[in-house]
Structure formats: structure tokens, C-alpha cells
Computed example of a mutant assay.
Amino acid sequence: MDAVFDALAHPIRRALLDRLRETDGQTLTELERDQPLTRFGVMKHLGVLERAHLIVTRKVGREKLHYLNPVPLQQVADRWISRYAAPFARTLSDLSHAVDEGAKIMSASGPKHVYEHFLRAAPEAVWAILTDDAKTPLWQHFNMTSTTDWRVGGAITFFVEGRPMIVGEILELAPPTRLVHSFSARWSPDVAGDPPSRVTWELSAIPGGTKLTLTHDNFGGDTATSRAVTGGWPESLSRLKTLVETGTPFLFPVAHAG
């Protein structure tokens, strides 16, 4: 976590994160605008933020877009804040959500929300938990359960107390590296009318572990779903990391999902 604190220590880097909070998915040209340093200087600061995994980048056409990755901030919350504020554990994701809350929607062709996580386990071990419905409540937001028909075209459904919260279809299934499914929110009337979006899980082997990249995109615009999901993914990914690495779930109190 030293890299995270080092990255946040500089005002220019905090200003760049503020820019991405206001409008996610910006190019270098957009981010360097009005900054009191050269283009090369901005690139160096962005490199520090990327190495700390506070931002991730994606090539869309000929452009390189920069996105916030709030997962490291969730790890800070999990490590220190929860110990002293256990009664408020349900709101710990606000630390990461505060970074990207209110983020504007970029072009429909680009990724919407991109998260990176590094786990001390082989891709096969991560995949085994990710695709085991019996383990879903040990890491998913709201301790959701799931039922899945594990084949392309099969249904995937997440529940809270027997009520469907998310319904979807398996679009791609390539063990143990890639899982893509559609995502239709059902937890409240304001999201129920949104079109299906897309969730892509990518697992890449790295020395000593796995790089997990989750991309949630294809929302079809600035929807209630696109704004709501930023609160749940950082928690879920942090809990998944804990479960994979320790074999012990990071349990949250059961909360009402709406």
C-alpha cells in the first residue's frame, strides 16, 4: 500500500484523480489541460498513479483513455477503517465510491468501469471460486447467492433472500481466463427499466499470482445502473481477494438491497 500513499501525496496527482472523478475515461490531452507543467510531466504523474493501480488505461481506437480504479482505496478501508468502525461496515465502500461518485459517462464505445486487482493465487484457483455458486455469498455485494447454468447461453441470476437482484446470460466462457455475462439490474424500479449491460472478467497469470481485470460496460448511456454499480464492485473484488488468498471470507452484515 506504500505506492498508494506515495501516489496520493502529490497535489498534481490528486488533481488528476479529481479530473477523472469529474469525467472518467479521459485522454492525456484532456488531462494535461490547465495543468501547471508540461505534457511529459503529466505523463510521469499518470505513470505513478497507474503503477499504484489508482488508474487503469485502455486503448479505444487510436486513443488511450484513463479510468479511475477505486479498489486500492477499498483495501485501505478494509485494512484500517473497518477495525474501528465495525458498526458502519456497510458503508465502507463509500471511501472508494467518493472517488468516482458523479463520474460522467464517456463514449458508448469505450469501457465504462474498469477495475484491476492482483491476487496471490493461480488463475485456476480464482476461477474455481468465481464460478462456484456455493461460494458466491462469501464475496458478493449484499452477500448475494447465485444460480448459474455454466455454458454459453446459460442463465446467471443473483439473489438476496430469494429475490432476483441481477439476471443475465453467459456470453463467453473460456476457463480459466475469461468470463463475460450480461447484467440486468432488478433491485429497484429505477434500474429495472435500464437495458442490459455487460460484465467481463479477465484472469491473467503473473509471477506469483493473478491479475484480475473486471470491466463493466455497454450500459447504453448514463443509466441508473451505471451509476449504482460503482458502490458494489470495489467491495466484491476486495472480498474475493480475501477469500482466494486466505480461504476465509470477509463477512459483511446482511443488508437490505432495496
Score class of each variant (00 low, 15 high):
D133G: 04
P249R: 13
Y84W: 13
P195K: 11
R62M: 09
G232M: 03
R83E: 14
L16D: 05
H117C: 11
V99F: 04
L16A: 00
S82E: 14
V191T: 12
T230M: 10
F159Y: 15
W233L: 02
K64T: 15
P137C: 02
A125E: 15
A103C: 11
P11I: 01
V99C: 07
R58D: 11
W139Y: 14
G41Q: 08
L92I: 07
R151I: 05
D6V: 09
I12W: 08
G61T: 11
P207H: 10
W80G: 11
D222H: 08
P196H: 10
G168S: 04
W139T: 07
V229R: 03
E50P: 02
G162H: 02
N143W: 00
E172I: 04
W127Y: 08
R120S: 12
F5C: 02
T57A: 10
H66T: 10
P234A: 03
I156Q: 11
L8H: 13
L54P: 01
W150S: 10
G41W: 05
T246M: 02
P195A: 13
V60H: 12
P189Q: 05
V99D: 02
L138R: 08
D190W: 03
A122F: 05
L179A: 03
T177K: 12
F219Y: 12
M43Q: 15
V60D: 12
D217G: 08
G221L: 02
V71D: 02
G110N: 12
T136M: 05
S184L: 15
P11E: 09
A108R: 14
V114Y: 08
T210F: 01
H181T: 01
A134R: 15
V71F: 09
A255C: 04
T148K: 10
E202N: 13
D34L: 06
W80M: 05
M43V: 15
V244C: 05
A134C: 03
V167K: 11
F159H: 14
G231K: 10
R227L: 06
V99N: 02
M106H: 15
F118C: 00
G220W: 10
E32F: 03
